[in-house]
Structure formats: C-alpha cells, structure tokens
Amino acid sequence: MQPELNIVALVSVGQHPKSGRARRAEQDARAVELGLRLSGEKVQVLHAGDVAEESLRSYAGMGLKQLRVLQQSAGADASLALGDYLSEHQPDIVLTGVRAESGESSGMTPYLLAEKLGWPLVTRIADIAKIENGEAEILQALPRGQRRAIKVRLPFVASVDNAAEAPRQSAYGPGRRAQLEPLPWVEAADEVRASFDEAPARKRPKRLKMVKAKTAAERFKAATAKSQGGGGRIMKDEPPREQAQAIFDLLLEEGVLR
C-alpha cells in the first residue's frame, strides 16, 4: 500500500443489465477497489451528478469515509466538470471504468480527461503491480485472460477492465453513514446529447448467410446443404489412441494448443 499516493477513482451510476435498475457500476467499482488496495481509505472517490443518488451509497459501502460529488444536473456534460476538478487538484492517478453502464456509454471519459490533462492514458488495466520512483508497472487486460505489462510515469489516467479484481462487497451500514459531500460546480449543458433520440434497445437482426451462387449447381448445393448441428461425431469402438488423436486434431484445428 502506498498511502502517500493521491488516487482519484471516478464513479458513475451503473445499471443492471436485466432489470435496468441503478446500481454501482461493475468497472467503476473495480476502480474503487484498486484504489482502496493501493492507498487504503485515502483514495478519493469522485462522482459528477446528483448527490441524492441512492446507488452512490453502494460505493460508499465498500468502506469509504466520504465520497465527493460535483453537483451536476441530468443534462450536463460530466467529463467537463471532472476535467476541471482534476486539473485543479492534480492527483497522481485517475482511475475510471472502461465504459459507463448508463447514458451514452461511449467510453470517452478517460480519453477526454487524459487529453485535457495532457497525461498518458492506459486502457483496460487489470492491475497496478507496483509503483516505484514515480513509475508504475501496470498489467493491461487482453482478450482471453492474457496480460500485457506496461510501464508509465505518474501522473496518468487508467481505465479499469472487468478483468481487474472483483470489488469487495458493499456493506449497508458504512454505506449509510458515509458522508456524501456535494460540491457545487459549474456545469455545461451537453447540447449534442440533447439532440439524441433514446429508445429501448431493439433486437438486432442476425445476419443471414446470403448465398450468392453463380451457377445452378451451386444454388442447388446451397439449397440442399445439410443444416449445421444435429449431433456431433461419436467415436465408440475405436481404440483410445485413435480417440485421443481425434480430440487432439480438434484442439489443433481450433488453435487452442500453444
């Protein structure tokens, strides 16, 4: 733990994918968790929005004494307010989620902040392995559980991936008692967003396999082709060697053997 570090974790209001109910956002909570592990209770958790938002309490329930809220109305551009605040306070590390679970979910906030602050941005991090002499060793999450090591000098912005350590459970009692400190802040209306037309997501049509056959024979083949599925291959009486070979060939074909 590095208590002298000044870490700010930015949190937003999440949304449950099934019920659509407000909750703590998964990635933001991971950012808070990472902050807590790096600098303990000293981590500063920042939200731009409404201090009365109930779901903020579930971040506080992770063991925060206080949570700072830049007061913004619903239609304001949060990244501007956050950018102002951060350039004023100049922390060492800014942690965010990759993408918000509500609103536009563009995932632009960390990029805009990094651009505004002029700091490097490390995307999709899984962990911060160590911080020494003003340089951080970071593990970046790659698809399929792979990791890449990156070194970067402080200060920097990092977006925390789902691969990071799962956030600790939010406890009700501390969440109730934590102090939500509202800071009146200048707000800029998000005019582009105001022109958006938002509706519940439609089901996207699955792309059909179009058959563009040039010849009658191809058309005939396409029309009578056996449909996929309908049971796989079963090897029953072959010797184990052959059976193992078949499995092995499949593994090779799928390219999972490294």
Binding site: G14, Q15, P17, G20, R99, A100, E101, S102, G103, E104, S105, S106, F196, D197, E198, A199, P200, A201, R202
Partner: peptide, 8 residues
C-alpha cells in the same frame, strides 16, 4: 447506449 440497454 446504456450498456446495451438503449438505442441512441
């Protein structure tokens, strides 16, 4: 948008 719950 909204983590896949909305169309913008």
């Amino acid at each position: 948008g909204s983590g896949g719950l909305q169309d913008i």
